[in-house]
Amino acid sequence: SDEELKKRIEELVRRGNKDEARKLAENANSDEARKWWEKLEQL
């Protein structure tokens, strides 16, 4: 689900694993996940 995906992306970003988070968001084929990633990346 998008919610689970967003949690995983956020967790990866928090751990400093941005590349992994980006790949996850891009491969998810989910606009919501991509937007979430872009938002987190700004922080």
Results as ranks from 00 to 15, higher is better:
42 Q>R: 10
18 K>M: 15
35 K>R: 12
4 E>S: 09
25 A>N: 01
34 R>N: 04
7 K>Q: 12
38 E>Q: 12
7 K>T: 06
27 N>V: 07
43 L>W: 10
2 D>S: 10
12 L>G: 00
5 L>H: 01
16 G>I: 00
26 E>A: 09
36 W>M: 05
9 I>A: 00
25 A>E: 02
36 W>L: 11
25 A>S: 04
27 N>P: 01
19 D>E: 14
33 A>R: 02
4 E>T: 08
7 K>V: 06
8 R>D: 02
26 E>S: 06
37 W>A: 06
37 W>M: 13
15 R>I: 13
36 W>R: 02
28 A>Y: 06
23 K>S: 07
18 K>H: 14
40 L>K: 03
35 K>W: 10
21 A>Y: 01
24 L>H: 02
16 G>S: 01
2 D>R: 08
8 R>N: 04
14 R>N: 09
18 K>W: 15
35 K>I: 12
28 A>P: 02
11 E>I: 06
14 R>Y: 07
38 E>P: 02
16 G>P: 00
42 Q>H: 11
12 L>Y: 04
24 L>F: 03
30 S>F: 09
8 R>F: 05
25 A>C: 11
25 A>Q: 02
11 E>Q: 06
39 K>R: 11
11 E>K: 03
26 E>D: 06
36 W>H: 09
21 A>K: 00
34 R>A: 05
23 K>H: 07
23 K>A: 12
3 E>T: 09
35 K>Y: 07
12 L>H: 03
19 D>M: 05
11 E>H: 06
20 E>C: 04
3 E>K: 07
22 R>I: 07
10 E>G: 02
27 N>Y: 10
15 R>S: 14
13 V>Q: 01
26 E>H: 10
9 I>K: 00
25 A>H: 01
16 G>A: 01
30 S>W: 09
3 E>P: 08
12 L>T: 01
4 E>N: 07
5 L>V: 05
26 E>K: 05
9 I>G: 00
6 K>H: 08
23 K>F: 08
22 R>Q: 08
39 K>Y: 15
2 D>K: 06
19 D>L: 06
41 E>C: 14
40 L>D: 02
42 Q>V: 08
6 K>R: 12
22 R>L: 10
30 S>H: 04
19 D>A: 08
14 R>W: 07
22 R>N: 03
38 E>D: 08
7 K>W: 10
42 Q>W: 07
31 D>C: 08
6 K>S: 05
21 A>H: 00
35 K>S: 11
9 I>Q: 00
39 K>Q: 13
41 E>L: 15
28 A>D: 03
39 K>D: 10
